[in-house]
Design a protein around this nucleic acid. Structure first.
Lengths: 233, 233
DNA sequence: CCAAAAGTGTTTTCTCTACACCCATGT
DNA sequence: ACATGGGTGTAGAGAAAACACTTTTGG
């Protein structure tokens, strides 16, 4: 029954680009790992692993993310497959990268420690092994595109967030400043946010109202062919 | 020296989604193959093949496209990797799809015949094997996105083309009508087209001026962060 | 009472859209 | 001379951009 038997077989891996957003430092961060095995032991890398016989690529990516963070059902998307022969000095490995957007505060800290993982500022990344830097660049590009067309940003913020925090996030992704009034006008006119009674009181005396993202309203808009473009400024 | 030796190995394939544009019928077409081997012999499929030990994914895609069309140095881009366990009934195969934009008139007709390939209208595709229809849908989505942001359309037209032909192409990609005056205003204002002396005289008595795409001007624009959006109508 | 961050509208500019007639020429 | 497809401009609507002051309250 086994067809194609004369063709070569390859090691296939998955690497996860885990994005998080640090509200205090107003920075995008990546969850990186100090490799504990050869080759490139002790160097920084993305979280990765090999694809097993009985799992799909998507399953492999979910498994690796779970082992690292203890999280399931995370917003994750395949981004690109890297197939150069010499990309991994250990062996010829074909690797598919996945990017995940997670809420920093949600991850299991013990697992993180256990895996030797740390959050690192995207703006000041250490040297990464192999072609992992390319993986990050490409994923960031895609993120910047997608943020214009989908409300992906909310996956990076806690359930409750202030408009200032949301704007800071968008500024971090776009890498430029956005006019406060235009931003609020636009984001509120989309009608996807629900204003809460509660205020955030850590960062200002006046306090800023919390909002939350309303998934149901978004689903409605989507069905009506709504365009979530955020081309403010 | 061979590390990772305890991990499973997989068949890895590449499938090529070859887009062409038929100027006369004003339709996007796909170059499809009647499979000559098992499983699914005699069914329509994309052009595909297995990745060898000594070639990268990109090389494999180029090779397969070359074997099919006799073309090299074609605009080709990786689109997505399909990794479900059961996607190919013959065996567990992980497959990366590539999409290519080619000029229909450029391909080697003998090779095409030899491979049992035919151009088929995208609007009226036959049933395709496995998940090849998904591959096409995804690639088409990407094409529709990219056309807004890059001048990819020119890869589908001959060197010399009229504005009417260019507009027809955009209408075929977007799947809707575009206002003639708005289209011309916008496309000409980008300053990427060079008007030739010569006229196309097949389709009208008056004749339509030929234009050609000016690659150098485009490179300039790109460096200045130019946005090639074509949101006409 | 004052420093610090939150919150709020209007005007101007630009881009998108809708729309209809003349031109050139082969038959 | 007429049928056929190629080519052209303008006015109105809507979206994006620029811009500065008032509010709240903990210390």
């Amino acid at each position: 029954m086994e067809l194609y038997s004369e063709y070569p077989r390859h090691l296939v891996a998955v690497d996860c680009i885990v994005f998080g957003y640090d509200i205090l430092e107003k920075e995008i961060k990546l969850l990186l790992i100090k490799r504990s095995f050869r080759p490139a032991m002790g160097k920084w890398s993305l979280a990765g692993g090999f694809v097993m016989e009985n799992e799909s690529l998507d399953d492999a990516a979910s498994r690796i993310l779970f082992q690292l963070t203890g999280l399931r059902d995370v917003y994750m998307e395949q981004s690109f497959t890297y197939g150069d022969i010499q990309r991994d000095p250990g062996a010829r490995v074909i690797s598919t990268s996945y990017s995940a957007l997670i809420k920093i505060q949600d991850i299991d800290r013990k697992l993180k420690e256990l895996n030797g993982a740390q959050w690192q500022s995207l703006a000041r990344l250490p040297h990464l092994i192999f072609d992992h830097r390319d993986m990050v660049s490409r994923a960031l590009n895609v993120l910047q595109m997608q943020v214009k067309v989908k409300p992906v940003g909310f996956a990076l913020l806690p359930e409750k967030f202030t408009l200032v925090q949301l704007q800071n996030l968008y500024e971090a992704i776009y890498q430029r400043e956005i006019d406060k009034r235009n931003f609020r006008k636009k984001i509120l006119s989309m009608n996807l946010l629900e204003k809460l009674e509660e205020k955030e009181r850590e960062t200002s005396k006046k306090g800023a109202f919390y909002y939350k993202f309303n998934e149901e309203r978004y689903e409605l808009h989507k069905k009506q062919g709504f365009d979530f473009s955020l081309d403010v400024n």
